[in-house]
């Protein structure tokens, strides 16, 4: 346990060293936040209760999304590329002989990264949005606590998805294509383009049940208080369920990949 805490700490510190990149990222998130905020204002002006949100809630959705983009690595930029590269150049063999669990090792490092990016890239855009627009941020500390739990679970789900994609490199010479498809799904079905509640009919219902919903839509809804009381527990359980399923799939894949390395020598 202590080992993984140390790994997480080093993940945190590693990203903390990229100061300029962090500042640049914050700037980008803020710019996109403004662009999207105005389009949402126009949209909600036409349809005041679209997707069950009022205008302030819709704007909150925009800014919380921008604040979480990096944390749950919705646009890539997490560890996935690094994992693929290590598989490709064979360094993964070194990781496999380490006296630590491969999946947990990477998860710990990714949690450390997410921790830094929540602070480093999340706070400023959200503040910028809150200063310029009227947002529906809750005053209830319990709601914020629930939100943080939801973010943690979102990071774990995101990790599990990216881990699976990264492991594909064991079977594919070049994982860029799969990574691309994965990023597409992430982008669209997490709600980062448009809240999933705005998706119409059955399509929307399916989108809201997919694992990507757990990465952004659910945490934002938890913060907005759309899951009150036991509903919040249900939302977290939804996330935890997907996290468990995907992590288990990751373990399975990892076991097969390891066999492949042992048999073929990489």
């Amino acid at each position: 346990m202590r080992l993984y805490a140390a790994v997480a700490m080093s993940g945190f510190r590693r990203y903390a060293t990229y100061r300029i990149a962090t500042a640049a990222g914050v700037f980008t998130n803020t710019v996109f936040g403004f662009v999207l905020a105005y389009t949402f204002i126009a949209l909600w002006h036409e349809r005041p209760h679209l997707g069950g949100y009022d205008r302030a809630q819709a704007l909150t959705f925009v800014w919380v999304s921008q604040a979480l983009l990096a944390t749950v690595s919705l646009l890539g930029g997490g560890f996935q590329e690094e994992l693929q590269e290590r598989v490709r150049n064979g360094d993964i063999a070194i990781d496999l002989y380490r006296p630590a669990d491969l999946q947990l090792w990477w998860l710990a490092a990714d949690l450390g990264r997410a921790g830094f990016q929540l602070l480093g890239r999340g706070v400023v855009p959200l503040l910028a949005g809150a200063l310029h627009f009227e947002l529906a941020l809750p005053a209830d500390p319990l709601r914020w606590l629930l939100f943080l739990c939801a973010v943690l679970l979102a990071v774990v789900v995101g990790f599990a998805v990216h881990y699976l994609v990264g492991l594909c490199a064991f079977w594919l010479l070049d994982g860029a294509g799969v990574a691309m498809v994965s990023q597409l799904l992430c982008l669209f079905f997490s709600g980062s383009l448009l809240p999933l509640t705005v998706f119409p009919g059955l399509f929307g219902a399916v989108a809201r049940a997919l694992p990507w919903a757990a990465m952004l839509q659910v945490p934002v809804d938890v913060l907005l208080g759309r899951h009150a009381g036991w509903g919040a527990a249900g939302a977290l359980a939804f996330q935890a369920g997907w996290a468990a399923v995907l992590l288990a799939l990751g373990r399975l894949t990892q076991a097969r990949a390891t066999r492949k390395v042992v048999v073929q020598g990489g």
Binding site: L172, L173, D174, G175, A176, G177, V178, M180, V181, Q183, L184, L187, F188, L193
Partner: peptide
């Protein structure tokens, strides 16, 4: 890496299309 090229070109189309 022909397959990757096709996938990424389609992906590029799709990312843009999603907007």
């Amino acid at each position: 890496y022909r397959l990757s090229f096709v996938l990424t070109a389609l992906g590029n189309f799709a990312v843009s299309a999603l907007d």
